[in-house]
Design a protein around this nucleic acid. Structure first.
Lengths: 140, 140
DNA sequence: CTGCTTGCAAAAACTTTGCATTAAG
DNA sequence: CTTAATGCAAAGTTTTTGCAAGCAG
């Protein structure tokens, strides 16, 4: 982990990273803190926020806001991917589609932008029972 | 406004809708409440939350979480569109791209889903000055 | 009348900030 | 030594919830 971008590699950060790597999928700050308390009971929630956000800015973690609650993070893989969430069970699937990526860059360019990043979240229904409520009705 | 989906058309809701229609672009709950207080000083913030969320579930409003702060809403147009945000000035541009939409449906279908909705937000740089900080570093 | 709606206040959920102390380099 | 990093508590934001009173149907 090349943290030597001008930042200090502290014991707390080592533990933080270890906790993160032990988590699966799309975790929240609280998930991390809970896990971390076992190794490092003295950890402060503020530090977790600050460190995770730092790692995200450095590109080592990626943030998403699936589901509308707390921000969720995941280790930034080499290959970028997007998310598809089931409106019923809430399960999150990952996928990647180069063609869409290319079109996104193209659209941005046409609008006079240099595309730096993007977030794409699809919502759908598992091919099973019908939606109990009105559906999470997410549109944009 | 066909609110007769089983819900009551109250005076408060009429005023709410009027306030919403007078707002431009991507407003927050607070924006709405502020505007609304002029016509209806007694309005409670909880009611604005509840009503806006109801309208969103009915598909009359669409929600997005551009910028990471409070949720933002806008009137759901007939034509769906997505957003492109400038990392520097924060300005939001809208666009639509049928080809991307088709690919999204296709991807969902391939994963065994019926696509109900989606949210896509692009982040880029205006072709001007360089980014002051590390860039909002949004990735997903 | 009946029960969906509303306003208010309190609480919950999530995140940021200030500051004295600690420890990395 | 110097100063970034940490822990803690307090404050800030955003959203939700409980309830009695108010209205639409």
């Amino acid at each position: 982990m090349l943290k030597k971008e001008g930042f200090r590699l502290t014991g707390t950060r080592r533990s933080l990273v270890k906790a993160i790597l032990s988590l699966e999928g799309h975790w929240t700050i609280q998930d991390t803190a809970t896990k971390l308390k076992k190794d490092l009971p003295s950890i402060g929630i503020a530090t977790v926020y600050r460190t995770v956000q730092l790692l995200a800015r450095l590109g080592l973690l990626s943030e998403s806001r699936i589901g509308g609650g707390a921000a969720r993070y995941e280790v930034a893989d080499a290959h970028h991917h997007d998310h598809l969430t089931c409106n019923q069970c809430g399960q999150i699937f990952e996928f990647e589609n180069d063609q869409i990526e290319r079109l996104q860059s193209l659209v941005a360019k046409q609008l006079g932008f240099k595309l730096a990043d993007h977030r794409m979240e699809l919502y759908g229904d598992c091919t099973r029972k019908k939606c109990p409520n009105l559906g999470r009705g997410r549109k944009s």
